[in-house]
């Protein structure tokens, strides 16, 4: 059964019976130079940088997957109060980070 997730205090319609602690998932990604150059051109006219949108959302999915892996290793069946944080940790590299509290719901 997949692990449930929410950014509220609890999973709607369920009650938390046990809570285990904070779980988190991260990933650091860099874009390659080709993308950088294309984005440079795109910046001239504005609009969505589709390649970046994709890169960031893919990375965020991976951060979530790692967070869920931690929750799974704690035998939790849900992660509540999930928060995201994106930060540029170095020139050209961004960290996507997700964290929440691992719980057991019923």
């Amino acid at each position: 059964m997949p692990i449930l997730m929410s950014n509220t205090e609890t999973i709607p319609g369920k009650t938390i019976v046990e809570f285990y602690g904070v779980v988190s998932g991260n990933t650091v990604r860099a874009k390659h130079v080709g993308r950088d150059i294309m984005a440079g051109f795109k910046n001239l006219v504005g609009g969505e940088l589709a390649a970046y949108t994709e890169l960031l959302s893919d990375s965020r999915k991976e951060a979530v997957a790692r967070m869920l892996e931690q929750a799974e290793s704690m035998n939790a069946n849900a992660v509540v109060n999930v928060r995201f944080a994106t930060s540029s940790v170095a020139q050209g590299a961004a960290e996507l980070f997700a964290y929440g509290t691992a719980v057991r719901v019923q």
Binding site: S24, N26, T27, V28, R29, A30, K31, H32, V33, G34, R35, V89, A90, Q91, G92, A93, E95, F97
Partner: peptide, 26 residues
């Protein structure tokens, strides 16, 4: 690790060398 991250900045992809550092720091 900065050197690895610099090379990664050319190729793109997962910057593995940063992960332990950020994990430790957090």
């Amino acid at each position: 690790k900065r050197f690895l991250a610099g090379l990664r900045g050319i190729l793109g992809g997962r910057v593995r060398s940063y992960e332990p550092l950020l994990d430790r720091a957090r």
